[in-house]
């Protein structure tokens, strides 16, 4: 790595320090994909990924498992296409979604390792509607992850990231509203425990006219964990009639838990609407008292408050089994934290 690195905008996330570490270099089996036969899945030797800064170059450095997924134009199926990341490594995933397709997609990562790099790029062609769920449950020590979404005109994206990992590291999520009328809702729900040090930078850039970008991040932090939420809404000059909204909230459950919520709005156009809200808070004693005054124990009351808080980030998840899995994970983490 050169002495001076070019890095993406990710305040309070120590990317420079992370990039000094060597990425796990064993070539692992690539991600597996469960999809109808009309969807083309391939594992070529290489694939063109975003490479505009040193962070991206680090992610792209070989050896690297590669997976490409091509969802054809007009594809329409509400059964989720499922991608499962390698059990013991990272990799590159490039997904193209054809015009006017209507897609439900689920990503799941539980990889082990010491230093993983993961890059996922999603190109959405005009008129497509995409419901995306990324379930991150990494068991690795450190993970640097980037998801980049490029959206053409009149596309709709509803993306939920459920962050239930054990690793430290960074998660960058960049959505580019390139075409006019593109609309993205990005929900992020994160549970941080133990000694995790996690940074999220969730950015939406309005390039096209009448584009809508909403970011909603919720994080619960316990033990000695540290969670940073950056929300970056950027409306570029010329993106008239666009809307950028964001909400970043963290809830700290223990004395040594640390949380940061940084809303960043960059507005270079006049004819737009934009807004943000941010908070870093502790469990509301009034809510606990109210719930307990009906006879539920302090432990149950606390879980209800926490679940309600995360619900705002994970509320879009329709898969009942997955939702139950997440709630069980919350309970398990809190039981460990209470012990």
């Amino acid at each position: 790595m050169p002495e001076t690195l070019t890095l993406p905008n990710a305040p309070k996330i120590p990317l420079r320090r992370y990039l000094k570490q060597t990425k796990d270099d064993a070539l692992v089996a690539p991600a597996t994909v469960d999809a109808p036969s009309t969807v083309v899945v391939d594992h070529p030797d290489s694939v063109v990924m975003p490479a505009t800064n040193d962070f991206e170059k680090w992610l792209n450095a070989k050896p690297q498992s590669v997976t490409t997924i091509n969802i054809p134009a007009g594809f329409s199926d509400q059964t989720p296409i499922k991608l499962t990341g390698p059990v013991d490594g990272g990799g590159l995933v490039h997904i193209t979604i054809g015009e006017n397709a209507n897609v439900v997609f689920q990503e799941r990562w539980t990889s082990t390792g010491s230093m993983l790099g993961i890059a996922v790029a999603i190109d959405i062609a005009a008129g497509a509607t995409v419901n995306w769920l990324a379930y991150d449950a990494f068991k690795a020590d450190t993970v640097l992850l980037q998801r980049t979404v490029n959206m053409a005109a009149n596309t709709t994206l509803n993306l939920t990231v459920a962050g239930f990992s054990q690793n430290s590291g960074a998660s960058l999520l960049t959505t580019n509203l390139n075409g006019d009328g593109a609309e993205a809702t990005i929900n992020v729900g994160v549970l941080a425990a133990g000694k995790q040090h996690l940074g999220y930078a969730t950015a939406v850039t309005n390039f096209g006219r009448k584009t809508v970008g909403h970011i909603n991040q919720r994080g619960v932090i316990t033990d000695k964990a540290h969670l940073v939420f950056n929300g970056i809404g950027h409306i570029v000059e010329g993106a008239r009639g666009s809307d950028a909204q964001q909400e970043n909230r963290v809830l700290m459950l223990s004395e040594h838990a640390r949380g940061d919520a940084n809303p960043i709005l960059l507005i270079d156009e006049n004819d737009v609407t934009a807004g943000h809200a941010a908070s870093a808070s502790r469990v509301d004693q009034r809510q606990l008292y109210y719930l307990m005054s009906r006879g539920v124990s302090a432990v149950v009351a606390k879980r209800m408050v926490i679940r309600g808080f995360l619900e705002a980030g994970l509320g879009e998840i329709r898969d009942a089994d997955l939702k139950q899995e997440l709630f069980d994970a919350i309970d398990e983490t809190l039981v460990n934290a209470d012990a």
């Binding site: 809510q287 109210y290 719930l291 209800m304 408050v305 309600g308 808080f309 705002a312």
Partner: peptide
């Protein structure tokens, strides 16, 4: 108090 994410019936 208002509690998000917990339905009335569930509570």
């Amino acid at each position: 108090a208002e509690i998000n994410g917990v339905t009335n019936a569930e509570f």
